[in-house]
Amino acid sequence: MSAVATPARQASSGISSKTLNRVVIYGLLALFALFYLMPLFVMLVTSFKTMDEIQNGNMLSLPHAPTFAPWIKAWSEVCSGLTCVGMKGYFWNSIKMVVPAVLISTLLGALNGYVLTKWRFRGHTLVFAMMLFACFIPFQSVLLPMATILGSLGRFGVTLQNATGFNFGLGNSTVNLVFVHVVYGLGFTTLFFRNYYEAFPTELIKAAQVDGASFFQIFRRIMLPNSLPIIVVTVIYQFTNIWNDFLFASAYAGSGDVMPMTVALNNVVNTSTGVVEYNVNMAAAMIAALPTLIVYIVAGRYFVRGLMAGAVKG
């Protein structure tokens, strides 16, 4: 009798402890999900509330009468310092900065990766290591010289403007930021493409050489058409990084109507004239967050892959 009973009891207690285990695991996972979602949730619901409701209601409650007014105000009226023209101008500043910077740095990274894997020369590892190290430096250590150089270029641009009527983009904050982001993004884009092309079969390049394709023809006809995954990864990574940058933006375009989105948002939030309109601030923050958030939702897989590639080499 007992010999039959024991395994049965064990089995039943096994099942219940297993269920308990699962409940605990799912409970913990849900709790952490709340922790990660909370700030976004608060930001989102607040941006649809009236000031009245914010002052008298609960932070976590859903808006009683959802209103788009804070979003509209944030987009076209909100004050950053003393100018009250909304976020829209700064939003476009960011777009104008991000798009060229991403395209240029990605293209250069692809070319660098191509040379560093398929056209190796003596010392290629050293060159790569030096470019890779640039990814890790604290940008504070180059901030000041860059400011000095950009300042001189700006003055030179004014001279050119007076002499020829055209400043060739010198002294333009957007051009400056594009340049800065290309320079300090090169390490990452090169890393991504080098690691991807490292695994790209070298026999294809040999075959194309025998077929008579030149250096650039091989790049355009063989390498690029087969690089879609890494292009997506690089573009997303660079887009997120450049859009979210605050240090360079505040150092080289920290005031006036040339500010990118992040700087403008910080100014809006810290503008202390009059009543603080939290709903408008939150809407402005949401507007600043939306582009990267959308990219994340649409192509999160590639975003994670980019982060990983930046962290774990090879």
Binding site: E203, L204, V210, I222, P225, N226
Partner: peptide
């Protein structure tokens, strides 16, 4: 010359 490679080296695209 023409060459046939071990991995065939066909352009995948």
């Amino acid at each position: 010359i023409a060459m046939v490679f071990q991995s065939y080296a066909l352009y995948p695209n």
